[in-house]
Amino acid sequence: MTGTEPTVGHPSIWVDRVAAGYRGHEVSRRLSLSIERGSRTALVGPNGSGKSTILKTLARLIKPLSGSVYLNGKDIGRLPTREVARRMAILPQVHEVPPELTVLELVSQGRFPHVGALRMLRHTDDEAVQEAIRLTRLEHLMDRPVDTLSGGEHQRAWMALALAQQTDLLLLDEPTTFLDVGHQLDLLGLVSRLNRDHRVTVVMVLHDLNHAARFADRMIAVLEGDVVADGPPTEVLTPGLLRECFGVEASVMEDPQTGAPMCIPHTTIPSDR
């Protein structure tokens, strides 16, 4: 996708000693992370581990309690929010759609960061919208109201909105929740293609560990707001981590087709708590 300006040398996102969370409820204390350009990162962790909070902090949906998040080397809190929106798109977990809004109308809103409140849509904007709709294969549904779509189509429409933003960084918050297995693979495959063909940097929160191992080139395991493991899937997805992080006994083997590690959980370990 069209990058706005080349900013070589900086990582896409750099998290510098950030305390994330809400006032009175700190989720993460001193988090430091660096996301390289063109990488695919999956954040994994048990329920309530703070992975969504961390993603929302990266996306500036939550302000860090202390520390800073840098986007292409610039403090995200100091950048105009519309400029951030031209470089980074997020697919939130829950969506609100007004009744009768069509797919095309929804996806067109993705051009807002480029167009602003007062300028009309230009030809290039139309092209970006059409491209997003083509990538998500929604051409035949363009004029359908979004609230009449099925779960998979619905998620694709929102994905198209994020794609129409034409950013080189894409954040996804549990994008496969509520989708059946076919649609899950569809969506994650699309994310991989975007990464491969358009060099889009991807950070996603995923529940399914096997999906994370297969579709990401880096896994970050989060427990109680802290990073407990960070590296390629083969190093992160181990029986030891599954025990420590998720409290399950599991065996890990290699997927004969993709070569990615995959885990089969057997039993839970009774916790002391």
Binding site: A59, R60, L61, P80, T81, R82, E83, V84, A85, R86, A89, I90, P92, V94, H95, E96, V97, P98, L101, L106, Q109, G110, F112, P113, V115, G116, A117, L118, L161, A162, Q165
Partner: peptide, 24 residues
Amino acid sequence: AVATIPVGNVLQLGDATAVNLGLR
């Protein structure tokens, strides 16, 4: 109205999406 219609259009998609699209 002219100034707030495009803004309202984005805002009706929810606060998270609005912020994501660069709207305060």
